[in-house]
Design a protein around this nucleic acid. Structure first.
Lengths: 230, 230
DNA sequence: GACAATCAGATTGTCGACAATCTAACAAGA
DNA sequence: TCTTGTTAGATTGTCGACAATCTGATTGTC
C-alpha cells in the first residue's frame, strides 16, 4: 500500500488552460473593463477552436468578471464606484465572520503560513512588482478564509477576490506604480497571532477601509468622463 | 419619447433555456445528488446538440450545483451535512447584513411586495405544492437581498439560494409532504414592517435556525449509509 | 435633407463528426 | 490467485462548417 499522498492531477483540458489565460489577462488589466472579446480572433491567437474558448468564457461569466449579451458579445465587466463600494462593504462583513471562524482553529501551521504569505508580499514589494504585490496581498488576506473551514464562505471569497484583484490592478495601473514602501500588513499579522479577536476584526475592517478609499476616489474620478470600452 | 419601462427581452438562445431546464430539474430533485449527466442522452432528449448543452453545464458548475471532472463527467453536487451547515451559518451572517442595509430603504413598495410574496407562500401551502412552497418561501426571504441595493450581496445570495432550494427540496421529497400548516412567516413579515431592526435580525437568525435543524438531522441520517449516485 | 428599406459583412450560436480519454472486461503470465 | 497488459465500447473534449442574428452603410423615396 502506497502511503504518500499525491496532489491531484492537473486539469489538462484546453478549456482549463484558456480559463487561466483569460482570467490572468483580465485580472492584470491586460484586457480592460468594457472591452469586447472577439471569439474568432482570440481562438486564432490561442490556436484553439471556438468551442473550448466559449465554454471557458461561460465559466468566467459566472465567475463575475465577464458579462455576456446574446448575439452581441462577451465583455469584460465594467467597474463602477458602486461595484467597488458593494464589494467592499460585503468584504467587511465576511472578514469579520472569517476571523471569528478561524480564530479557534489557529495553530502553528497557521502562523507559519501567515508568515510565509506575509514574506511573499514583502518580496513582491521589494521587487516593485505591483501585479504580484496585489496578488500576494490578497493571498495573505485569503488565509483566514481557507482556515475558516466553510466551503461556501471560501467560494464567496474567491469570487470577490477576482473582482478585488481587478479593481486594484486597474488602480495601480492608472497611478503607475507608487508602491507603498512601508509594510502595511505588519499590524494585521501581529494581531492575527495575538489573543484579542475583536481587535483583529476591528483592524481588518479599518485597514481594508484605507485601501478601498483610494480605490473609490479613483473610480469616481473615472466616472466623471465615462469612456466607451475599446 | 416613450416613457414606459419595458422588461428586458427574453434570452432566446438554446443555452439559456437549457440552463433553466437543468436548474429546475436539479432544484426540484428530479436529478438527484451525485447523479451523472450523460451529455449525449440529454442532448438527444432535449433535441439540441451537445455544444449549447455543454456551455449550459459549465454555467451550472460555476453556479455551484454541478461539479465536473475532466474526461469523467459532470455530476449533480453531493449534499453533505457539512455543506448544509456551512451554507446555513453564512446565511445567518448575510441575513443580518441584508436586513441592516434594507432597513432604511423600506417604503410602501417594499411592504406591498413583502405582502405579495407572503401571500404566494400561503397560496402554495394551501395547494400542498411543496416545491412551489419552497420556491416562494425563498423568494419571500430574498426580498431583503433585492432591497439591500448591493449587487455583490445579491449575487451571493442567489448562489446560496440554489443550494438551499436543492437541500430543502431533497428534504421534503424524503419526508414526503408533511407540509407545515401554520404560517411560520407571519412573525417575520410583521417584524420587517416594524421599527425594531435588532429584533428582526434576531428573529431571522432563529427562524432560519429552525428550518435548518431539521435539514441537518436529515442530512446526517443519510450519511450513516452513503449510497452511490446512479 | 430626413427617413425607411435593403443589403453585405462581421460575429455569435448551433450542429455533426472526429480525436482523446476513460472504464471495464478479458487474456496472459508470474 | 493476483497482477499486468490489451482491447472494445462508451463518453467527454475539440474541431471546422453552417445558420441565425446584429451592425452599419447604402440606396431609394418623400
Amino acid at each position: 500500500m502506497v502511503k504518500t499522498d499525491f496532489s491531484p492531477i492537473a486539469d489538462t483540458t484546453r478549456r482549463a488552460e484558456i480559463v487561466a489565460l483569460l482570467r490572468r489577462a483580465i485580472l492584470t488589466g491586460q484586457l480592460q473593463p468594457g472591452q469586447k472579446l472577439n471569439e474568432l480572433r482570440i481562438s486564432e491567437q490561442m490556436r484553439v477552436s471556438r468551442a473550448p474558448l466559449r465554454e471557458a468564457m461561460r465559466e468566467l461569466v459566472q465567475e463575475g468578471i465577464l458579462t455576456s449579451i446574446p448575439y452581441a458579445g462577451t465583455f469584460v465587466i465594467d467597474v463602477t464606484a458602486k461595484d467597488i463600494d458593494d464589494a467592499y462593504s460585503l468584504n467587511q462583513v465576511l472578514d469579520e465572520f472569517a476571523i471569528e471562524r478561524t480564530w479557534p482553529q489557529r495553530d502553528q501551521r497557521f502562523f507559519d503560513e501567515l508568515d510565509r504569505r506575509h514574506e511573499a508580499v514583502k518580496q513582491a514589494t521589494r521587487n516593485l512588482d505591483t501585479t504580484r504585490q496585489i496578488e500576494t496581498a490578497l493571498q495573505l488576506h485569503g488565509l483566514i478564509y481557507e482556515w475558516a473551514d466553510n466551503s461556501v464562505l471560501l467560494e464567496t471569497w474567491q469570487r470577490l477576490t477576482s473582482r478585488l484583484q481587478m479593481y486594484f490592478a486597474l488602480h495601480q495601473h492608472a497611478r503607475n506604480e507608487p508602491v507603498p514602501a512601508e509594510d502595511v500588513h505588519e499590524t494585521y499579522v501581529q494581531l492575527m497571532k495575538g489573543t484579542d479577536m475583536r481587535a483583529a476584526q476591528r483592524h481588518a475592517r479599518e485597514h481594508i477601509n484605507l485601501d478601498f478609499e483610494q480605490l473609490l476616489s479613483y473610480a469616481r474620478s473615472l466616472e466623471q468622463r465615462p469612456s466607451k470600452g475599446a
